[in-house]
Simulated scan of single mutants.
Amino acid sequence: MRKIKTVAITGGTHGNELTGVYLIKKFFKNPDLVKRSNFETLFMHTNLGAMKQCTRYVDKDLNRTFVTQDLADPSRCTYEDILAKNLNEKLGPKGSKNPHVDFIVDLHSTTSDMGLSIIIDNDSPLVWKLAAYLSVHEPKLHIFRWKGDTAEVSFVNSIAPNGFAIEVGPIPQGVLRADLFFETETLVQKILDFFEKYNNNTLETLPKEIEIYNHIKLVDFPRDKKGEIKAAVHPNLQDHGYIKVQKGDPLFIDLEGRVIYYEEEADVYALFINEAAYYEKGFAMCFAEKKTIKVS
C-alpha cells in the first residue's frame, strides 16, 4: 500500500462560490485544523481574480481548463489558462507518476438542491475506498459519478492521480450559507481523518458495496429555432435534488403554461436541477441512475 504524502484542499475555483473561499480563509487563520500526523495538507485559493470580482471566472471556467493538450499549449494565455498551467506545475503535473500531491479535494457550491455531495470522475481504488468510508461516516452524503461535459476530465482535481469535488447546495451565487459551510468543513475533517487512518493501516472494515448516482446524460432546456430557452424547469422539480423521474412526470413548463413531460421508459434521477452557472453550458439538469457498486 502506497502511503499518502500530500493532500491538497482547494477553494475559490469559482470565485462566487463562497463556501470554499471562506473555508480556505479559515484554514489560513487556523492551519492546525487540517494538520494530521502522517501526511502534509496543503490548502489554497485557486482563482483569486474571480474571487476579487465575486464572479465564476475572469475569462473562462477554470474547472474546465485542465485538458492535457491545452496545458502544454503556449498559445493559450487567458487568465484561467495561465492559472491552470501554474496550478498544474504546483500540484501535478497531470499524468505524472510522481505528482506533487496525491489527492485533491476541490470545494464547490451549487444553486441546486444537491445537499452534501461528492462528485467523482476518477475510478482509482483509493477514491472509491474513501467514498465507502464517507458513506458510513456521513450518512447525509450523496455520491455522484460524473461522466462530464468535456471529452477529457478537466476539473482541478484531475491534476492529481486521485481526487474529487465536494458540491453543497442550494446556495445562491455570492452568498455564504452557515449551515452548509459547517457541513462542508465537517466533511473535509472526515476526509483528512480517513487519510490518517489509511496511512496508519487502522481503517475499520469498510462496506464492500455502496449506493451511488451514476451519470446518464445532461438535459438542455427546450429551445426555439433561434436557440432561445422557451420553457422553465417545472415547479415539481425546482428546489429538489436526486429526485426520481418517471414516464409522464413534468420536466418543464413553457411561458404559456404548457407542460413538457418526461417521455422515456426508464426511470431516472434528476440532479443539478436549474443550476444557475449551467445556463451558459446549455443544460437544465442532469439525469442519473441509482445503482449499487462494488468497492475493492
Score class of each variant (00 low, 15 high):
Gln189Lys: 13
Ser158Tyr: 03
Asn157Val: 07
Lys217Cys: 14
Phe194Ser: 12
Asn200Pro: 07
Val153Thr: 14
Ile171Thr: 13
Ala232Arg: 14
Gln238Pro: 00
Ala165Thr: 09
Leu237Trp: 02
Leu176Phe: 01
Glu196Phe: 00
Phe181Gly: 11
Ala232Val: 11
Leu203Pro: 15
Leu176His: 04
Pro222His: 03
His234Asp: 06
Val153Gln: 11
Asp224Asn: 15
Gly227Ile: 04
Leu180Gln: 05
Gly169His: 01
Lys226Thr: 11
Glu196Thr: 06
Gly227Leu: 02
Ile166Glu: 03
Glu185Cys: 05
Ile159Val: 13
Asp179His: 02
Val233Phe: 01
Pro170Val: 00
Gln238Tyr: 03
Pro235Phe: 02
Asn162Cys: 08
Glu228Ile: 06
Val175Met: 08
Asp239Phe: 01
Asp224Ile: 08
His234Phe: 03
Pro170Phe: 00
Pro161Thr: 06
Phe181Lys: 11
Asn236Val: 03
Asn162Leu: 04
Ala151Cys: 06
Lys230Gly: 05
Ile229Ser: 04
Pro235Gly: 08
Gly163Tyr: 00
Phe182Lys: 13
Gly169Trp: 00
Val168Ile: 07
Pro161His: 06
Lys190His: 08
Lys230Leu: 06
Glu183Phe: 00
His215Thr: 12
Val233Thr: 14
Glu196Met: 02
Gln189Met: 09
Ser154Arg: 09
Ala160Asn: 04
Leu206Glu: 12
Thr184Glu: 02
Pro222Glu: 02
Asp239Gly: 01
Val156Phe: 09
Thr184Met: 00
Gly174Gln: 04
Leu206His: 10
His234Asn: 12
Thr184Lys: 03
Pro170Arg: 00
Asn199Ala: 09
Ile210Pro: 15
Ser154Asn: 09
Thr205Gln: 15
Pro235Ser: 07
Thr186Glu: 10
Phe194Met: 08
Glu204Pro: 14
Glu183Pro: 04
Pro161Arg: 05
Asn199Lys: 11
Ser158Cys: 05
Ala231Gly: 07
Leu192Gly: 11
Ala160Trp: 00
Ile229Cys: 05
Ser154Ala: 15
Val188Asn: 02
Glu196Gly: 03
Ser158Phe: 01
Ile210Tyr: 13
Ile212Leu: 10
His215Tyr: 12
Lys190Pro: 14
Asn162Ile: 03
Asp220Ile: 01
Thr202Gln: 11
Ile159Ser: 06
Val188His: 01
Glu152His: 11
Phe194Asp: 15
Ile191Tyr: 01
Leu187Phe: 00
Leu187Pro: 12
Phe181Leu: 10
Pro207Lys: 08
Val168Gly: 08
Lys217Asp: 14
Leu180Ser: 07
Val219Thr: 11
Asn236Ser: 12
Leu176Trp: 01
Leu192Ile: 13
Thr202Asp: 12
Leu187Asp: 05
Glu204Ser: 15
Ile171Met: 02
Leu203Ile: 13
Asn162Pro: 09
Leu192His: 07
Ala151His: 10
Leu237Thr: 11
His215Gln: 12
Val153Met: 06
Phe221Gly: 08
Ile166Trp: 01
Lys226Gln: 10
Lys226Pro: 05
His234Thr: 13
Leu218Asn: 15
Phe164Val: 09
Ile212Glu: 11
Asp224Val: 11
Asp179Ile: 00
Lys225Ile: 15
Arg223Tyr: 05
Glu196Lys: 04
Val175Thr: 14
Gly169Leu: 01
Tyr198Phe: 07
Glu228Phe: 02
Leu237Ile: 08
Asn200Gln: 13
Gly174Cys: 03
Asn214Trp: 07
Asp239Thr: 04
Phe195Val: 06
Lys217Asn: 13
Asp220Val: 03
Asn162Ser: 07
